Amino acid sequence: MTDDIQVRRIGADEVDRRLERLADILIDCVAHGDSVSFLSPLSRRRALVYWRSVADAVICNERVLLAAEDSTGQIVGAVQMVPAASENQMHSARVVKVLVERSARGRGIGRWLLSAVSELARKEGKMLLTLSTTTASAAERLYASEGWQRVGIIPGCVLASDGTDRSATFFYKHL
């Protein structure tokens, strides 16, 4: 990890200003085969609609958005935390959309995003995080190497960005 990357929370007061850049990163990830809930090609309009919904959830305190920024303040990665809405699961949250722009990969940014979201979850009283990813992906290897525990695999659970069936691996982490 280089010293020029900082991970920080994007607040409701600035999330609208960051939508275009977040859309760029999402489009880049999908175009390069990452299975992050969208099929390729992902249009700018669709990416912006998605990020607008995230922004609304951030503004309503229903979701947390963390961004990895380079020394110029440009976002190069992001992760979201979605606290459980159920009364009997208030101690848990889901981690979604761990995104790192292709040109910024290999610098430890994904690890820093996971560490930052885990630390934030602890501060907010969460004791359990969950996530899922495409089986046999680089993301699966990352999560396992960062101490996340595999729960299991569901065959044919997701479509890859090219539309082919893929299995999903589910993980949890006690904080």
Rank of each mutant, 00 (worst) to 15 (best):
D4W: 12
I5T: 05
I5Q: 03
V7A: 07
R8Q: 10
R9N: 07
G11I: 10
D13N: 06
D16H: 04
R18A: 03
R21Y: 06
R21N: 03
A23T: 00
I25Y: 06
I25L: 07
I25T: 01
I25S: 00
D28G: 01
V30E: 01
H32K: 12
H32S: 07
H32L: 10
D34T: 12
V36I: 15
V36G: 04
S43W: 03
S43Q: 05
R44W: 12
A47W: 09
V49E: 15
W51N: 07
R52E: 10
D56E: 13
A57K: 08
A57C: 13
I59Y: 01
I59V: 15
C60D: 11
N61F: 12
N61D: 13
E62A: 13
V64E: 03
V64C: 06
L66Q: 04
S71M: 11
S71L: 11
G73F: 05
Q74C: 08
I75E: 02
V76F: 09
N88K: 11
M90L: 09
H91Q: 08
R94V: 04
L99K: 04
V100Y: 13
V100I: 15
S103F: 15
A104N: 06
R105V: 14
G108N: 11
G108A: 12
I109R: 06
R111H: 10
L113K: 11
L114G: 02
L114I: 08
S115F: 06
A116G: 08
V117A: 03
E119H: 11
L120H: 10
K126A: 04
M127W: 13
M127H: 14
L128D: 01
L128H: 10
L129A: 00
T130G: 00
L131N: 00
L131V: 01
S132T: 01
T133I: 03
T134M: 13
A136R: 15
E140I: 01
S145C: 03
E146R: 04
G147Y: 07
I153F: 05
I154N: 04
P155M: 08
P155V: 10
C157N: 15
C157Y: 15
A160Q: 10
D162E: 13
D162M: 14
D162H: 09
D162P: 10
A168E: 15
T169M: 05
F171E: 01
Y172E: 03
L175K: 02
